[in-house]
Amino acid sequence: MEGPPNNPRTVEEVFKDFRGRRSGMINALTADVEKFYQQCDPEKENLCLYGLPNETWEVTLPAEEVPPELPEPALGINFARDGMQEKDWLALVAVHSDAWLLAVAFYFGARFGFDKNERKRLFHMMNELPTIFEVVTGISKKQPRDKSASTPHTSSKKKSNPKMVIPQPRLSEPQMKVSKMPTPKDDEESGEEEEDEEGLTLCGACGENYASDEFWICCDVCERWFHGKCVKITPARAEHIKQYKCPACSNKRAKI
């Protein structure tokens, strides 16, 4: 398993070793799960699940020599067997098994002098396979989270977030929050009020008028609008703010 002295193992050989051990551990946690469950008797001493290069597995005591020839799997997996539901216990063993496989593969990589590119290639080859945890829990059969959830979530958040004002050529968007509901009047009076309100749309920090090419944000306490740059808030940061408080309102709460 070690290879002859001064004859380093290749990335392909280490990956073959990884794949064989992985297959054995997957069999223990899926096809041979009843046999594996019975062997993990909590009355026994610390037991470990080993995957072997020939795609088999064994539950046994850890190696006696210190330090061991290879990194050791998680100790005492049998002690937790009866303290949790079977599916949760199998998932826990799967997580530790994934960690052990990576440790063994990169142990060989370090021992046989893999350089940066070889380690990167080895990891890429291993990462192309589903993890044991994904296989045991069925996560690998689901759609990737970044394709199924991230894009709709981001787009809906931009549409529903009332704090952000993406620059527009008119003042209608910030006025929606700062202006009162207009009372029924003739067209001439309402037009004059709109012009007055447009002139009152000022930044609460610098006092400057609204500009169509600038990002604005509204305080949820005093309902005043601010240039993003005046209160050091960017559009990206505003995406994650549930309730924005301007510096003045934040200071008032702190004093209280």
Rank of each mutant, 00 (worst) to 15 (best):
E86C: 09
K87D: 08
K87N: 05
K87Q: 13
D88N: 04
D88W: 01
W89G: 00
W89F: 04
W89T: 02
L90T: 00
A91S: 09
A91I: 03
A91L: 03
V93R: 00
V93S: 02
V95Q: 06
V95Y: 03
V95L: 08
H96T: 12
S97I: 08
D98P: 01
D98F: 04
A99M: 10
W100R: 10
L101M: 11
L101C: 10
A103S: 14
A103Y: 03
V104R: 02
V104G: 03
V104N: 04
A105Q: 02
F106I: 03
F106H: 14
Y107C: 07
Y107P: 00
Y107F: 15
Y107M: 11
F108T: 01
F108N: 06
F108W: 13
G109P: 10
G109D: 07
A110Y: 09
A110T: 10
A110W: 12
A110I: 08
R111F: 10
R111N: 12
R111H: 14
G113R: 09
F114Y: 09
F114I: 05
F114K: 01
D115Y: 02
D115M: 03
D115K: 08
K116C: 09
K116I: 10
K116N: 12
E118P: 00
R119D: 13
R119N: 15
K120F: 08
K120E: 14
K120Q: 12
K120I: 08
K120V: 10
R121V: 04
R121H: 08
R121I: 00
L122A: 06
H124L: 14
H124R: 15
M125I: 09
M125N: 13
M126A: 08
N127D: 15
E128G: 06
L129T: 11
L129Q: 15
L129H: 14
L129E: 15
